[in-house]
Amino acid sequence: MSPFLSVLRSVVLWLCASLFVAGIAIVRPKRLYGLWGNAVPRLRDARRELLALGVVLLVSAVGRGSLQTISELFGLRLTGFIWALEGNFVAWLQQAFATPELTMYFSSVYVYGYAFLLAFPFLAYLALPKTTTLRRLLVAYAFNYAIGLALYTAVFAHGPRNLNVGTSLLYTHNPEFSALTSAVNETTNVFPSLHTSLSVTVAAFAVLTREEYPLWTPLAVWLAGSVVIATMYLGIHWLTDVIGGTVLALGCVYLSYRIVDPDEAA
């Protein structure tokens, strides 16, 4: 549908522009030149991890509908439980801090900042001579999606805006975004917050590899922190989802370090 195409187009354009600028500023032209001729062998080196991530994404894309049906029929219905657990925290957050400027900032971060945050590490770690970090990142992403999908199936819950706890700041002010988010997500997939878990994953990698890209680390942490707050500020996720997402992220990063061995032939 056309609102979907228009948002998708602006996200892709923004992504290309921001990757170009950040590539020059953070990865540096020298390393980017190094990609010429090296990118293909490095990707081949990470083929198993790429394949794993590809399979997970494919299963998620193909099976989402039927898993959603299973979740609807048999999933644990936790909306009321989560609300009882944390109450109106999200509504309080909005009441205490919401301003039109902040809403604009967090809406942009939620869509554009998040896209950049996920895409940039691919480029940055592919530019590294050793593929260990790249492979770890791919494995961590794959785990995030796979475990996320399993939890989405097991848990059937709606986000705070759907309980009218706080308002849906994102969609009230930018309904066109809902065309994009509804195409890639179900409204009942709130626990855990995958926005949170993937952002925290990227931030964790940025901290762990701070020697390679010292400029990236504070930027990644800032962006990830903003995305995490945005998920609640915009009324999309519960605090519980964010905590769940953070735990998931740290677990996935740990697993990726356990699984991908740096000494393996690169």
């Binding site: 056309s2 609102p3 195409l5 228009s6 948002v7 998708l8 187009r9 602006s10 354009l13 923004w14 604009m104 809406s107 942009s108 554009y112 002010h173 930018n174 066109e176």
Partner: peptide
């Protein structure tokens, strides 16, 4: 397909400047 005035109907500010063109393209399609 619509008299959408693209960027004017969105609150996204500068981030959405491309939106106008995209809507125009979609308009032709419709």
């Amino acid at each position: 397909g619509g008299s959408a005035d693209g960027g004017g109907s969105t609150d996204g500010g500068e981030f959405l400047d491309d939106g106008g063109n995209a809507t125009a393209a979609a308009e032709e399609l419709f």
